[in-house]
Simulated assay, not measured.
Amino acid sequence: MNPPPAAPTPARFGRLIGVSLGPGDPELITRRGWAALHSGARWAYPVKKAEESSYALDIARRGGLAIPADAVELVFPMTRDAVALARAWARAAAQTVQLLAEGRDLAFLVEGDASTYSTFRHLARAVRELVPEITVDTIAGVSSFAAAAAVADLALAEEDETMAVIPAAYGVEVIDRLLDEFDTLVLMKVKPLVDEILELLERRGLTATSCFVEKVGAPEERVVHDLTRLRGEKVNYLSLLLVQNPKRARGELRRGCRERAAPAAGSPAAAIDA
């Protein structure tokens, strides 16, 4: 008589799941993200300071989800101090590995999309540096600029148009140059440079084709088409500008999907290929 099959050995580590929640509106959480939040995985969420409120956690709360009693905060300070940042990342990664070592999945709540300017990718990389075999699962979500274009009734790109997404911190000189290279510019985190960017857009005659969006999807959402209203105003950190340049000169496009014909036998190109 054959012995009964052995019970499967539990995984040594749980999965690290980046759960994208969208930029603020709980209705933008995807079905896959919603399922992960109900999967029994432990929750982890980012904060800037210990015991501070979490924007990502607030999205889940406004979606009617009960916050699990064992949800864990991970501190990621807003600082340019390289030493302080290194310590914070090391501490968060070690804490994450310790939680995953219990064999239970860990759902890390992410505002926006987990692959776009997200803390999650840094965390996943730091965790894998400690324990390479840990499985990372990233659940895609709605990005803030996609949601902003929708609420502002704008197209990010149509047909053969081009677009670029950059942090506004690169400065007005870079923005000025990119305006001639892309039909749409998405400028993220514009808070420190609003007045300088407004001056540039006025000089380029692009204020009428630009739009400011703040805290998209949140109860405090604000959409401003008349950019002159923003001059001298202190805006929220979670704000962006959609800038369109309909006057941009475009180069000739190579259309069609047919491959180039093979060179005829005896041609110079055929001889080189041989």
Rank of each mutant, 00 (worst) to 15 (best):
V243I: 12
R229L: 15
W89P: 03
L65C: 07
P5K: 13
V127D: 03
K48T: 15
V172Q: 09
R248C: 03
V75W: 03
A149T: 01
R255S: 08
T116F: 15
V83L: 08
T228G: 15
L123H: 05
A11W: 02
G22Y: 00
R258G: 04
E196V: 02
D70A: 12
A94F: 01
R254W: 12
L123A: 09
W43Y: 10
L230S: 07
A35E: 11
T116P: 00
L37A: 01
L193I: 14
A147S: 15
Y45C: 06
R42N: 07
I166F: 03
G22M: 01
A146R: 12
L179M: 14
L206M: 11
L193R: 09
K191I: 05
F145E: 00
V97N: 02
R231N: 02
T79E: 09
V127Y: 04
S267K: 15
P246E: 07
D58N: 13
L154Y: 11
A126M: 13
Y170P: 00
H225A: 06
T162I: 01
L74D: 00
G256W: 14
M78L: 11
I139C: 00
P4I: 09
V224E: 13
G251Q: 12
I29D: 00
K48Y: 10
A152T: 03
E199V: 13
F212N: 00
F13P: 02
A249K: 15
A274H: 14
D180N: 14
Q95V: 01
G251T: 12
T116V: 15
A152F: 09
L240T: 08
T138C: 12
E259M: 15
F120H: 07
